[in-house]
Amino acid sequence: MRDGNPNEAPLMLCAGEALTDMLDQGDERWVSRVGGSTWNVARALAALGERTAFAGAISQDRFGDAIWAASEAVGLDLRTLQRVQRSPLLAIVEKTEPPRYFFIGDDSADLHFDPAALPAGWDEALRWAHFGGISLAREPLASNLVALARQLKARGVKISYDPNYRNLMDERYTPTLQAMAELADVIKVSDDDLRGLFPGTEPEQALTQLRAMNPSAYYLLTRGGDGASLLLGDARSDAGAPKVAVVDTVGAGDASAAGLLHSLSNHPERPLQSHLHAALAAGSAACLQSGATPPPLAAMQRLFDQLQGDLT
Rank of each mutant, 00 (worst) to 15 (best):
L145H: 01
P119S: 13
K158V: 02
A46D: 10
P99E: 13
Q85S: 14
A142F: 04
G75F: 04
A109K: 00
H130V: 04
V41P: 09
T96G: 02
A129D: 12
N40K: 13
A117Y: 04
R33F: 15
L118S: 05
G64C: 05
E124A: 11
G133N: 05
Y101V: 04
S32E: 14
F102I: 09
A42P: 01
P99M: 11
R155E: 14
G64D: 09
E139M: 10
R155L: 13
D110H: 06
R127I: 00
K158F: 12
P99C: 12
W68C: 07
G49K: 12
A117F: 02
L136H: 01
A116L: 09
Q151R: 15
A55E: 02
V74D: 07
G132K: 07
A91Q: 10
L76H: 01
K95G: 13
W122N: 03
K153H: 15
R100P: 00
I58E: 09
L48S: 03
D106F: 03
L111N: 07
D61H: 11
A149E: 07
P98K: 10
W39Q: 11
F131R: 01
N40W: 07
F103G: 03
D114A: 13
R155W: 12
G75Y: 01
R100I: 08
D106G: 02
L111H: 08
A44S: 15
G36K: 03
V84I: 08
A46L: 07
E72K: 12
I92S: 08
W122D: 04
P119V: 08
W128T: 00
E28A: 15
D106R: 15
F131K: 10
V41K: 12
V31E: 15
P115I: 09
E139C: 03
P115W: 05
E94Y: 02
E28I: 03
A147T: 13
A120W: 03
N144K: 15
R79N: 14
S71Q: 02
A42M: 09
K95M: 13
A137N: 06
I58R: 01
R33D: 08
S135T: 05
I159E: 09
L48W: 11
W39Y: 15
A129G: 02
V84C: 02
G36C: 07
W39C: 04
V74R: 10
S59G: 03
F54A: 06
G36R: 02
F131E: 09
P99Q: 01
A116R: 08
D107L: 00
Y101R: 02
V146N: 13
R86N: 10
A129Y: 00
A137M: 11
D106A: 14
R83W: 02
L48C: 04
A44E: 01
Y101M: 11
D123C: 12
V31R: 15
V157T: 07
R86V: 06
E72W: 10
S87R: 12
A125I: 05
G36D: 06
S71G: 00
N40M: 11
